[in-house]
Design a protein around this nucleic acid. Structure first.
Lengths: 173, 173
DNA sequence: CATCGCTGGTTGCACAGTACAACTCTGACC
DNA sequence: GGTCAGAGTTGTACTGTGCAACCAGCGATG
């Protein structure tokens, strides 16, 4: 059945409601967006990759979190985080302090320089997003924002998704 | 949940209207989503990367498009597309035919096998998305879908974004 | 106290996706 | 024919990523 009819909700399982078409569209558009995000970030702020930006952003709102937290939240391998963290540290954007209570963990903090870099990029992104969303009615903006939060709140990533659910569900605000 | 509250926190910049906060949240959540998308796709359907899936999907709806079209639409370098296309062809999922009118261009088509692979994956994705969105009221789903389409309709990627706008704006629905 | 098992983190390795630049081939126009 | 432009390919290099193997503290158990 042929994905040609994909959007048509035939195979769509439980009943051909408009909801199915909507799900289809959401799936599709999220995918398109995802595909573009990196490149877009690269164009917008070459000095801070999307990943770095995301991690810094996380650190800003939860200053003093551990590498493991980042890994859980973003569904990344700890090795990946380790490397990213190293890079960010090398770049002087964050620093790690060993937790005196548990010498295994290193608590991550933004440096001043990191905060500034983050702010610069955030500003640039904000401008871009704002421009892009300029003619949206406020009501739509808030609803869209809420939908996205709700969508992301799903424990998609973390297999033992506690971190994730907590963070995505409740934290960003 | 409270995208509505998210807002107050950040110095949403010039003029603290709720709209700014919403923009902030949208920016943030889109980013989180983007960060997860690949890994998620990898987990969901290891046999077809997010990129491959996207390209196949594009071919399905616009059968017979050129590599350049793909590059433009997805803001990818033509070399990248070239390689992806090669891989997909090697995997027997697509085939290329030289345009008889212009021997420079090769027109891309899904093979049967490609169509099936795409369908399988689409089905899997559909299921996942549907599960994830299961308890959303239909009204929210349709609105969310519309927002996403509208968002993506922005000619963000393609510098000469005609392709892009057309496709994102009108087609997926 | 010695040891085991767990958790946090790093390192080696492999691989996908990507860009950029240099190149080839083809078609269009003078 | 000569030159320019567009479509694709190839060489090269880099980033992000995961997996597996490893090291290092912590806590429980003998």
């Amino acid at each position: 059945m042929t994905a040609a009819e994909t959007p048509d909700e035939t195979s769509a399982g439980p009943g051909g409601r408009p909801a199915d078409a909507a799900v289809e569209t959401i799936q599709r558009e999220m995918t398109v967006f995802a595909r573009r995000a990196r490149a877009s970030a690269g164009r917008m702020h070459p000095e801070l990759s999307l990943v770095s930006y995301t991690l810094l952003g996380h650190l800003e709102e939860r200053d003093g979190c551990r590498a493991t937290d980042l890994a859980a939240h973003y569904a990344l391998d700890k090795s990946t985080v380790s490397r990213q963290v190293s890079a960010l540290e090398r770049a002087g954007l964050i620093e790690r302090r060993v937790d005196p209570d548990d010498h295994r963990v290193q608590v991550l903090h933004l440096t001043e320089s990191g905060r500034h870099a983050l702010d610069r990029v955030t500003e640039r992104r904000r401008t871009a997003f704002r421009e892009r969303l300029a003619d949206w009615p406020e009501e739509d903006l808030t609803r869209f924002a809420a939908y996205l939060e709700r969508y992301n709140a799903w424990p998609d990533a973390a297999p033992g998704g506690d971190e994730d659910r907590a963070a995505a569900g409740g934290t960003y605000g």
